[in-house]
């Protein structure tokens, strides 16, 4: 009798295991209906400049809160980091290989429905996520200490020429970057410039890259324009901008490839937000000087 009972239990467990592994489950970010059903929008973000501040406010936080309100669901902030942000959205561990990606077989739990964190649109990222239209213009500048021998370039008026001028002066200069992010030196063909590429530890706060330059840990650092502008205000006379290392870029919200409806819903929402002028007010709130450099942004 006892053994029969035991057999039954064992069989039940095996069946459950089989079901678990054989019946294909729903992996990846949720679609719109699931978000609506769940009644909650999970916002993946990294504390980064004024996109997401330490206080968990910022441009992207307010943007996502408005989107959740638009959907009629609650808002939830899910903190992540640059290493795991894509995996947190897609459930897949992805590593960039130039402009291409490498997806590892390991699975990763999906923790969010949308990435909005000053997320630069990069070619490799576009292969794994669906970006919304540009929510923020950007670019990558090379920053150095004020007393650096490296001199800022004289702008030519053409961004690519300016990039070339910058690269020309990088011989023997250490350049700090952050792998797998928009500040990844590999993205900007710096390897052939004679510069010494240094990688900022992934587990460190990106905001510490510039202080690292000031601390003479490195000669220069790559930095996106919004953060560079803030840094220039924060440390006047201590750092200087050498010039651009990338053409103009854009930041946007990222959705999983498996969430087209959610992506579409955001597109609709964002269009309304832009047309009403509220988005511009939001941008000016957190980046008042943005439109000095990108006067055409939001002009369409």
């Amino acid at each position: 009798m006892h053994s029969l009972h035991l057999k039954k239990i064992t069989l039940l467990m095996l069946a459950m295991i089989v079901i678990t592994f054989t019946i294909p489950g729903k992996s990846g970010a949720r679609e719109l209906d699931e978000v609506l059903k769940a009644g909650k929008l999970r916002h993946l973000g990294i504390v980064y400049a004024n996109f997401i501040t330490k206080e968990k406010s910022g441009l992207d936080v307010e943007l996502m809160q408005l989107f959740a309100e638009h959907l009629g669901v609650k808002y939830e902030f899910v903190e992540t980091d640059w290493q795991n942000v894509v995996a947190d959205l897609t459930g897949k561990i992805v590593r960039p290989q130039g402009e291409d990606i490498e997806i590892s077989g390991e699975s990763h739990p999906v923790r969010g429905d949308v990435i909005a964190t000053g997320f630069t649109i990069l070619p490799w990222r576009e292969k794994i996520v669906t970006f919304s239209e540009t929510t923020f213009p950007t670019g990558i500048w090379l920053l150095a200490r004020a007393d650096s021998a490296l001199q800022p370039i004289a702008p030519t008026g053409e961004i690519q020429k300016d990039v070339d001028l910058v690269k020309q002066g990088l011989t023997g200069v250490s350049v700090l970057g952050l792998k797998d992010s928009c500040l990844d030196p590999n993205l900007y063909a710096l390897n052939g410039t004679g510069a010494t590429i240094e990688t900022f530890p992934a587990n460190r706060d990106l905001n510490e890259m510039i202080p690292a330059v000031m601390a003479r840990i490195t000669d220069t650092t790559l930095m996106d324009v919004p953060v560079a502008l803030i840094a220039l205000e924060k440390w006047p006379g201590e750092i200087k901008v050498i010039g651009p290392v990338s053409p103009d870029q854009g930041m946007a919200c990222a959705f999983a490839k498996t969430s087209p409806q959610l992506s579409q819903a955001f597109a609709t929402f964002f269009k309304e937000l832009k047309n009403s002028g509220r988005y511009k007010q939001l941008v000016e709130k957190y980046y008042p000087s943005l439109f000095i450099y990108y006067p055409q942004f939001l002009m369409d």
């Binding site: 004020a146 001199q151 702008p155 502008l229 006379g237 000095i292």
Partner: peptide
């Protein structure tokens, strides 16, 4: 600090296209 930072940045050779505009913007504000 704001005005001086502009002139500092200028003295550092920064151009308006890459950085100085921000200082001017802040000073204007």
């Amino acid at each position: 600090k704001d005005v001086l930072s502009y002139f500092i940045n200028k003295s550092l050779g920064m151009s308006e296209a890459y950085g100085l505009k921000v200082s001017l913007f802040v000073i204007k504000q």
